[in-house]
Write a protein that binds this DNA or RNA. Structure first.
Lengths: 194, 194
DNA sequence: CTGAAATTTCAGAATATTCTGAAATATCGG
DNA sequence: CCGATATTTCAGAATATTCTGAAATTTCAG
């Protein structure tokens, strides 16, 4: 591995972290390297810096492209493919969340919906379905929130995150100011309330 | 594997999903099984239902305990250990997020802080540090939001998630009502603003 | 077209992880 | 304390993943 020490620490760390995230070490390292590079890199650059085989880099880049995590671009008069990550780190977060949702949440929701359609054949199955219903509703709430928040532009998203639970205070204030007392509790208690 | 078909589908799915989440198939299956079971199960129950070895179950349960994802309890007059998941699914979410933060975010933050202390020895290193700073600040914002939101009781958390970006509308309303016009922009634009 | 450069594919080697059975250890009622 | 029951440990087998080098394919300038 042929990298400045400071960069190497970072790259090695993301290589190790990769395995916790369902991507392999090399893919993690390639991504980390592209992330901290000022200029886009071609495959041969990556081979030299990480000290892995050309074919390994090729497969790693293919996987990163499947995740939409890298951009492919070209330099004038140079046939090689150059890769980079978006400059905007929030764009990276959005892509990551979107792709993980697509791979993990969506198939799980499909399965849950299928299983919940079936008729339970025993008390055991009935209870199992109840639990799956809870999980289904939870995922629905979370993905609904995500779909909503994802549409915000970054400035507003940051504003929202910075506030954190202080939003709560504002909600309480809103309630005190605007909600008709009698209707307040029932509206708030139903998670499906839009 | 000795399970009602409906339950088996669910258990197999979580076995496969496990690998995307840094846990192995058996651990995923054990967790899924405990999640949909009405009654706590002992190790031998799990062996029978999943058709894996006793030692594999033992190791799987140990890992789930390390993740704080299962509860160990006893029945009167029975020496065996019985395991279950919390009834409250929100408690499960909180634990999962907490543990993943502990294992993935916290070590990364430690590393970023260390590397950011060092003196860059080249333009390349300087740029790398800038990117790491961006990542550090992003993680800090996200974990700050998380720490804040985590303290909410479940009812309020659900309320917040249900609102989604509608919170935005309320914020705008608040601004219009309460903020002194001149100070508005500068306050809103600084992400570090508490 | 041609052929040099770039990239991809893929079989098998290298490595890492998971799983098992046997043995060791721990627990607890009597 | 004994011994029956429960649980854990761990070496090695089974399996799965990752990585490489060689060959195949693609791309494009001339």
């Amino acid at each position: 591995m042929n990298l400045p020490p400071l960069v190497q620490t970072f790259v090695l760390h993301f290589g190790e972290m990769g395995s916790r995230w369902g991507i392999n070490r090399t893919v993690g390292q390639i991504y980390a390297l592209l992330f901290i590079s000022k200029e886009p890199l071609n495959a041969e650059d990556i081979v030299e810096r990480l000290g892995v085989s050309r074919s390994n880099v090729s497969m790693g880049l293919k996987e990163l492209q499947a995740w939409n995590l890298v951009r492919l671009q070209h330099k004038p008069g140079d046939r090689r493919d150059y890769f980079s990550t978006p400059d905007d780190i929030w764009q990276i977060v959005r892509t990551l969340v979107e792709e993980r949702k697509k791979r993990e949440i969506d198939p799980t929701m499909t399965l849950l919906r299928e299983v919940l359609m079936q008729e339970p054949a025993s008390a055991e199955e009935r209870h199992a379905q109840e639990r799956m219903r809870e999980m289904h509703d939870l995922f629905e709430l979370l993905t609904g929130w995500y779909a909503d928040v994802q549409r915000l532009d970054t400035e507003r998203l940051v504003q929202l995150l910075t506030l954190g639970s202080k939003v709560q205070k504002i909600l309480e204030m809103k309630d005190r100011l605007f909600v008709v007392p009698g209707s307040k509790k029932s509206r708030r208690d139903d998670p499906k309330d839009k």
